[in-house]
């Protein structure tokens, strides 16, 4: 088992957001987590990635059998966890190339590898750029600065491709995308799917799941996963709305 979340409770500023989440993800699987706004989807993603503002008050998260909550953000990334941000952060003055090179090399260092040779790095950049149809030169562009909404999301998938993670958590990667960008982003994710990795796709709408077909769909509601099923659950949700879930619980 790649990821095992047991009775996870997490809060921010004393307010409990996650109230007992249970989730199991195996290699080779794609899980979709759906649910209405403010229900804890992004919090769950943040807790997996290690954002420190969230306090885990109860429960555990095991990743590759190890307690994930004990290790800092960057070590989680080096262990293969990738978070695709809902709102990618702009970092003026840090070029994409430098950012990616530093990230790739730090991850290599973590695994006892030498820094990537320059030529190889540039080839890798070009290859992955093509995959997500980024045509702009990234060398002189600061991270996400002046990127359009679609470019920012493509850039997240580009970074995912560069870092080749084992577990990707994509937080509302579809929000703010037009249909073309959505297709490109989804194609990127699909190309990266393998038997050796897993993806958790967090989304509000069923639309993305037409392109990234999940093995499992979970509904997160008021801090708990209240319903799980196959991909047909997403369609059912789409037609019946979240009210249907709320009614089912109450």
């Amino acid at each position: 088992m790649l990821l095992k979340i047991k009775n996870l409770h997490a809060s921010i500023n004393g307010k409990e957001i996650l109230k007992g989440v249970n989730l199991e993800v195996n290699k080779g699987e794609v899980h979709a987590i759906m649910g209405p706004n403010g229900t804890g989807k992004s919090t769950l993603a943040s807790v997996i990635a290690g954002r420190e503002v969230f306090e885990v008050t109860k429960g555990e998260v095991l990743y590759k059998g190890k307690n994930l909550l004990d290790i800092p953000v960057e070590a989680r990334a080096c262990e293969g966890i990738f978070l695709g941000f809902q709102y990618p952060v702009e970092i003026p003055g840090v070029s994409m190339t430098n950012f990616m090179r530093t990230a790739v090399n730090e991850q290599r260092k973590y695994h006892g590898l030498d820094p990537i040779p320059s030529g190889e790095f540039l080839r890798l950049m070009e290859e992955k750029k093509k995959m997500v149809e980024i045509t702009a030169k990234l060398t002189n562009r600061s991270v996400n600065e002046g990127f359009s909404g679609g470019e920012k999301k493509k850039n997240e998938i580009f970074q995912m491709a560069m870092l080749n993670p084992t577990l990707s958590v994509l937080d509302e990667t579809d929000s703010g995308l037009d249909i073309d960008a959505l297709r490109i982003v989804a194609n990127g994710v699909n190309k990266l799917r393998s038997k050796e990795n897993a993806t958790i796709v967090i989304t509000h709408y069923q639309r993305l799941l037409d392109y990234i077909v999940p093995d499992f769909v979970h509904v997160l509601f008021e801090g708990r996963i209240v319903k799980s099923g196959g991909k047909e659950l997403a369609l059912e949700l789409e037609s019946k709305g979240y009210e249907w879930i709320k009614d089912g619980i109450s």
């Binding site: 990635a49 290690g50 954002r51 420190e52 800092p72 953000v73 960057e74 989680r76 990334a77 080096c78 990738f82 978070l83 941000f85 990618p88 952060v89 702009e90 970092i91 003026p92 003055g93 840090v94 430098n98 950012f99 530093t102 990230a103 730090e106 991850q107 973590y110 600061s142 991270v143 970074q159 870092l163």
Partner: peptide, 29 residues
């Protein structure tokens, strides 16, 4: 910027080096 720090670290870059990147970017202008 704590958001930027988290973003950089989430890619595997250590806290120290994330700080360096941000400070250098700040000075670079």
């Amino acid at each position: 910027d704590t958001e930027a720090m988290f973003y950089i670290r989430s890619r595997g870059i250590s806290e120290h080096n994330a700080q360096m990147l941000l400070m250098y970017a700040f000075a670079d202008e």
